[in-house]
Design a protein around this nucleic acid. Structure first.
Lengths: 216, 216, 216, 216
DNA sequence: AATGAATGAGATTTCATTCAT
DNA sequence: GATGAATGAAATCTCATTCAT
């Protein structure tokens, strides 16, 4: 690869490259806490370690910061998950176990867990965003799961059920965990074990989906 | 003593009685759509069929409108549900069937379905409200369900599981339905059958909770 | 005097006659405390024992209430004092003693003592009023005193001094007392003896005005 | 190290230093003319040569602008006057002559002469301020004068009189001059010679305070 | 005559955005 | 590239005034 004299990368040069990302990270937190309208550019700037004016060097407006943010984390994890799912040959149980473990972990520790809350809160003010998430995230996630369930039914692992609805059943406790983490958890000290919760969920769900006459 | 007519009750006197409710109804819709900060008092007023100033005859501030709203619908349905649950002697299946039918109906048609979205969106700006809902709604609902599940375990209807977590499993699809209705549904035309979804949920859940050796 | 059937004067009829005065009395207090802009019609109404709307039956606007008030107490006491002064034949000392006693008493107990404060405070917003008071009250009072002093100089009771300036010297402690009563006195409990103060004032003033070679 | 020029001191940095003062100067004029409630932030801003928003960069609210203003000019001149008075060894006449000349000059030309009017007008709405002025300005001024008079009595320059009351007598024409300047003078063209008035005041006052048997 | 619910103009205050430095 | 002082549009809130009862 021809990068003959990869610049010495003066420290502020690296900063410059990193700025938009730093700003969006700051925005993520602030928007999650206050919502779009109540978030002040100054809050975001302060959290990003810059001043108000600087944000406008990288984004033309508050709205654009918000939209960039909402688009940023989409597709990353999800898209390849969908890809893998299509080719996946293991059992439904195996697949969901892996998936929910990863997701559970993100909820427990990840920063991005707050994005859904942002979308929920601002869907009314930014309907395009709601639609964007609908098509890019929700439909893809549900589509992937529907496919997995359907395959499970074909194979006799799962009894006859409407796959798209079951896909939502599969996701529901994840959604609830996300909301719990972002809405309830901050207000009280009692910790909640999302991993254990999702693990139980999977256990009950798969049992509930077992074909009738099956021998355990 | 001659009190033939209930009261003089001048016509605007009757209006005055009704006004606060009308305003809160309007506020419910507007807050649900825009969130607290982005909702304009004038919007709420217009929707209630009055002007800005009138709202201030009944509520001292925007914040108080919001808080009144958040408190208004609490406990109504829920509290007596909890009471009935404690005394309920029927099976877990029966109880949950009735409960989810009622709830599903409210989600499908009710106006109040948007309240949770409001609380989710504004929990960061009004932590007291988040706490209030946590104690008054969530804890009570989960407590009620935990009790029902526990009773089911005692009776052998339900296998050995951590009841509080299962209570959340029970609720998760309800939460998801509410969010779907308020966030996703408005952006697209495809209708979603909440009743059917919750019915499937119950079916899978109860099956997933059946004691191991049970004969169907 | 031909008032053959002086009406039985039903009590509310008397009220009706009295209303404007009651409202102005209330306004006097409220305006004195808050000033014109900060005084609310509702405050005035409440203090007068009526409701906002009622005031508008008697006065077309807040401004007119204020102006009526400012004109109300003018000339009453003052004008005849001026008249008496012109014809007065006694000594300067005698005259001022009587005058300051009356005035001192009004300051100590009267309600009207607050009027000057109102005029001072609102002179900027109602220059006509300031002019009105200037011509109707101040000029008349100073003119009267100037006349008295001048007569005193003629008679040899008072040494050669510019009478109009001395008239102001004569008034200054009165002005100060009024301000003390309305501005300082309300904020603390220590009482102030206006009568004694004005009496001392007169003593010092007259001594200071004695002709040079006079034997005491 | 080369620090040839005091500082970089970008030009707007110097402005920032000056702004609060400029705003308070503007506020002084506007509040004096209209009173607190009737003064619009926009008026103050315009007079200070900025826009509404700018004021809020330096003061959190209109009320705080007002309070800052009321506190600003306190103690400056007065406090050292009090200090000097305590140590002063000259005659009462000398001292008061100097004092009243300075004061008379301030009234004739100074901007601050309007502050007392502001305090008088707003004492009802800001009782803390009235108290503040009472303790910081009035009590100190009267205390100083009382001390001077008392010393004069000891020395035999002044006859036996209650010193605190005489202190007020001394101040009364000053108060009246201030009110004349701020309330009456703006409404008419005839000028008033405050210096001459106060000079006459001193002449009459001191004569009035001379010990009885004194030979002139 | 009196009420008091309703109005809406106008004030304070906030904050996204601009721009000289 | 970064700053932060300044702007001004837009929101909340107040209250004089109106008017149906």
């Amino acid at each position: 690869m021809s990068v003959p004299h990869e610049k010495p990368a003066r420290s502020w040069s690296r900063r410059k490259q990193a700025r938009p990302g730093e700003i969006l990270d700051a925005a993520l937190t602030v928007f999650a806490e206050k919502g779009f309208a109540a978030a002040r550019m100054e809050d975001i700037a302060a959290r990003a370690g810059v001043t108000k004016g600087t944000i406008y060097l990288y984004f033309p407006s508050k709205e654009e910061v918000f939209k960039s943010l909402a688009r940023k984390h989409v597709g990353d994890t999800l898209v390849n998950a969908a890809e893998q799912a299509r080719q996946y040959e293991g059992s439904v149980r195996e697949f969901l176990t892996i998936l929910l473990t990863v997701v559970g972990n993100k909820i427990q520790h990840g920063e991005v867990a707050v994005l859904p809350k942002i979308i929920i809160a601002e869907s009314g003010n930014f309907p395009e965003l709601a639609r964007f998430w609908r098509t890019e995230v929700i439909d893809k996630a549900l589509g992937m799961l529907t496919g997995v369930i359907a395959k499970g039914i074909e194979r006799g692992e799962v009894r006859q059920v409407p796959a798209e609805y079951v896909a939502r059943l599969c996701v529901a406790p994840v959604v609830m965990s996300i909301i719990w983490r972002t809405v309830i958890a901050p207000t009280d000290a009692v910790p909640f074990d999302y991993q254990k919760f999702l693990s139980l969920h999977l256990d009950v769900l798969l049992k509930g989906l077992e074909p009738e006459g099956r021998k355990p």
